[in-house]
Design a protein around this nucleic acid. Structure first.
Lengths: 221, 221
DNA sequence: ACAAAAGTGTTTTTGATACACCCATGT
DNA sequence: ACATGGGTGTATCAAAAACACTTTTGT
């Protein structure tokens, strides 16, 4: 593995090149649980496997542009703010050729972002606790992305983005509990979250549910 | 920037390729301040500029292997544990050709790791508060790496690796203060750091300094 | 002997956790 | 009217912050 050829420390026209892909773990919150968006597109080597949406970076794109573009092509999603998770560069991680990949993650409100795909059933939301075995090394990527999401949530609680415009505190709490996989005290949760000052009452109440809970919204985005 | 050619969502032998470099921000603690290791190697476009040590990834290497290899070639350093910071993929970030880079960071004890370079003066430690203007976009990389280091230190305090084998608690505290750019209470710092259980008394005392401070060492590595 | 830095414990404050009752709405 | 979930306050506990004097060593 070690390379001691000192002529190779500088970039030239002839420098080694390889392909580059971007993959993204898009998380959403639906039916009270955290979900991950997977696709099953005709990539020969892993036909039949579910995968994180992803594909090659092109000549005129940054990785960030590539991931936005590819996610749109595969799923119809647009304007999903993405964040880098990690770069994977094992020599043999792709069966066709050497491919380095960067994994991103993004969070969306599923109900605001309709999935668009030519075939049915090749783009689907999966419960995070019921993921199928993924192709390539995407199990690892998905797991790393989830951990990144969790640790970002622990630091600064930016989860409003996963919920509809207006939501109850119970809904927000369920999201936390699902993500962090732990139960929280309702009163303590309310206090902590409200004193962040990121939420305000919308003035409306949610109907169809007992107790008539207040609907909240983000103060800013 | 947008690409709507659906044929490009899959990797083939003909997929676009580009070069790849790794750069690394190596941090050390010397003379009571945090320092960053920079090199001034003959990279044509940025001759005369100081840079993070870095260079191209080769065909048979992962990014992790490449960064270890290149750091060794440029500076003589070995066994520097590195961690990924971020991937930079602006199309025009390199003057010769399109180059995507992954930035790493590592921390070492300078006195245990002698710098080896053919020329003198082309590899040097710089105080973190007196960095020169760097070539390419390395100002950004260095800054991002420092922030990553800081946030990792806040979580789990792994800083013994920056100090000599045996060190006083004051020296450790100065490292923290230098890194975090804030003053800490000596007693609170001692208590907090000792109850982590990662340090033990070496039994020796440091001479040449008033008060005769105890020398500590890491319990494990 | 004096100056400078090291070593040590207690009090106060703050934030986190645990806990129970009343109120609003849907059925 | 009753059942279900929503909304609220306080007491306790643990962790973080503030604070001052004594001991050791170098000059």
């Amino acid at each position: 593995m070690e390379n001691t050829d000192i002529t190779n420390i500088s970039i030239s026209e002839e420098s080694y090149e390889c392909s580059f892909t971007v993959d993204c773990a898009v998380f959403g919150f639906q039916e009270g649980v955290l979900k991950l968006l997977l696709v099953q597109k005709g990539i020969d080597a892993f036909k039949g496997y579910w995968l994180l949406p992803g594909g090659p970076m092109q000549e005129n794109q940054t990785a960030e542009q590539a991931v936005e573009n590819i996610l749109h092509l595969l799923t119809g999603l647009k304007n999903v703010h993405q964040q880098q998770v990690h770069c994977y560069s094992s020599v043999d991680r792709h069966p066709v050729k050497r491919v380095v990949t960067i994994c991103f993650y993004g969070i969306i409100k599923p109900e605001n972002h309709p999935i668009v795909s030519e075939k049915h059933d090749d783009v689907k939301w999966f419960r995070i606790d019921e993921l199928p075995k993924l192709g390539f090394d995407h199990d690892t990527l998905a797991n790393d992305a989830l951990n990144k999401l969790k640790s970002n949530v622990e630091e600064k609680l930016i989860l409003g983005e996963l919920l509809p415009e207006k939501f109850t505190l119970t809904e927000l709490q369920e999201l936390y509990e699902s993500l962090m996989d732990q139960k929280l005290d309702r009163r303590n949760f309310r206090r902590k979250i409200l004193q962040k000052g990121l939420l305000k009452k919308s003035g409306e109440k949610k109907t169809g549910v007992k107790g008539g809970p207040e609907l909240f919204e983000l103060t800013q985005r």
